[in-house]
Design a protein around this nucleic acid. Structure first.
Lengths: 96, 96
DNA sequence: TTGACATGCAAGTGTTCACTTGCCTATCGT
DNA sequence: ACGATAGGCAAGTGAACACTTGCATGTCAA
């Protein structure tokens, strides 16, 4: 990974699922994310998810804090503001 | 290219520049995009930009219409709505 | 009609990315 | 202390991607 900006972080569907999960509830550990994704049908190894979390952290979309031997994660949608500000979403242009 | 969704379309910096340009002004042809990007310091070949435009079109972020022997492009930010609706941007969480 | 212009198509190449594999570190319970 | 738990680090692999190269197609001006 050269550099992990917001756009590249969102480019992977598994990372988007992880972000979905973290937006729903904070303080989730790596193993909990693994469990939820496995139950949801997304078979991903612990290492794979760990690397996805690293990308999300570098992009600023996820913050993590060490708690004992676990690491709890929480989502931060602030970096997404760059997207909406760069290209404001206009109303339907279809002239019906 | 397997499938070109909005997220993958935004993952490339050159495509983001093209989208910037098309948001600024509509009806731009491939050659005009090449000229503008070259002047802006982004050396990209015509073929490269053509393929980027294909990805942007497949994602729905850009629409194109054939006009004579040229093809004019215009941006459509509607697909970006999916992003903001999926992860609403919350205000700064820093409790100052 | 003929040549120049604007673009499309398709195969090939090198790089980046997602994932695995194997081992290591740190923390908790007993 | 010791085993189990939670996670990290780093090298290797295969696939996807960005880009090039060469040729083909269609349109306009003379």
């Amino acid at each position: 990974m050269i550099v992990a900006d917001v756009y590249r972080a969102l480019a992977d569907p598994t990372r988007r699922r992880i972000l979905d999960l973290l937006v729903q509830r904070d303080g989730v550990t790596l193993f909990e994310i693994c469990s939820v994704l496995t139950e949801a049908g997304t078979e991903s190894s612990r290492q794979a998810i760990s690397q996805h979390l690293s990308v999300l952290e570098e992009s600023g979309l996820v913050h993590a804090t060490k708690v004992g031997r676990t690491k709890v994660h929480r989502a931060d949608t602030e970096p997404l503001r760059e997207i909406t500000e760069r290209w404001p979403v206009d109303r339907k242009e279809t002239q019906s």
